[in-house]
């Protein structure tokens, strides 16, 4: 276990050296936050209570979303993009011969990144948003705890998806296409372009059942206290996806290892 901790710490340190990039990223998130606030104010002004959110829920959604985009890795993350690159170039063979589990190794790398970006980029837009608008905050220690768990689980789900996408390069020659399709799905179904509660009819129902919903929409709803079935079922929903993606990831790792061992890469 120590080795994974060390990897995560090293990854955290690596990302903490990108100071200006982190700062510009937080600035961009803040600018987009204001744009979305203007849009959602108009939308919720026209249709108060849309999707079960009141105006301050909608605005809080915006700032949480902007803070979580990078840590959760909605647009993909440097770490899993590098993993995909290693698969494409064949350098992955080196990783497979290490006496560590491939998935845990990269999970540790991603965790270090996520924790740094959560600390450095997660809070900044929220603070700016809270200074300008009237936002909702969790009201009890229990709810804070639930938020922390939901965010952590959201990052795990996101990693599970990104890991599978990166490993697809073992079987698909042009895995960049898979990466872009994954980006489309992630943007659309995570709540990054519009809260999933606003998605109408069956589209909404499908969207809210996807693993992408578990990455962004669910943690934000835990913060807002707006999960349709309560916090317990929301966390259970995330856990189900973690188990499914974890098993799929493990299977993909085994198959990939066999492929490399037998075919030599």
């Amino acid at each position: 276990m120590e080795v994974y901790w060390a990897i995560a710490v090293r990854s955290f340190r690596r990302f903490s050296t990108y100071r200006i990039a982190t700062l510009s990223g937080a600035f961009t998130n803040t600018v987009f936050g204001f744009i979305f606030c203007g849009v959602y104010l108009t939308l919720w002004h026209t249709r108060p209570g849309l999707g079960g959110y009141d105006v301050s829920d909608a605005l809080t959604f915006v700032w949480l979303q902007q803070g979580l985009l990078a840590p959760v890795g909605i647009f993909g993350a440097t770490t899993t993009v590098e993993l995909g690159e290693r698969v494409r170039t064949g350098e992955i063979a080196v990783d497979l011969y290490r006496p560590t589990h491939l998935m845990l190794w990269w999970l540790s790398v991603d965790a270090g990144r996520a924790v740094f970006q959560l600390l450095a980029r997660g809070g900044a837009p929220l603070i700016v948003g809270a200074l300008v608008f009237d936002l909702n905050f969790p009201s009890s220690p229990m709810q804070w705890l639930a938020v922390a768990v939901a965010v952590a689980l959201g990052i795990l789900v996101s990693f599970g998806i990104r890991y599978l996408v990166a490993l697809s390069g073992f079987w698909i020659t042009d895995s960049r296409g898979v990466e872009s399709m994954a980006l489309v799905l992630s943007l659309f179904f995570s709540g990054a372009i519009l809260p999933l509660v606003v998605f109408p009819g069956w589209i909404g129902e499908v969207a809210r059942a996807t693993p992408w919903a578990a990455t962004l929409q669910v943690p934000i709803d835990v913060w807002l206290g707006r999960n349709p079935g309560g916090v317990g079922s929301a966390l259970a929903f995330q856990l189900v996806w973690i188990v499914v993606l974890g098993l799929a990831g493990r299977m993909a790792t085994v198959l990939a290892t066999r492929k490399v061992v037998i075919q030599g890469g």
Binding site: L43, T46, G177, S180, V184, L187, F188, L194, G201
Partner: peptide, 25 residues
């Protein structure tokens, strides 16, 4: 062709959001 199509889809999600909004307004 594949990257062109996915670029169209990625950049198009913004307008899909607008269309979805108009299901309520």
């Amino acid at each position: 062709a594949l990257t062109l199509v996915s670029t169209m889809l990625i950049t198009g999600t913004d307008f899909v959001a607008v269309v979805l909004m108009f299901s309520h307004i």
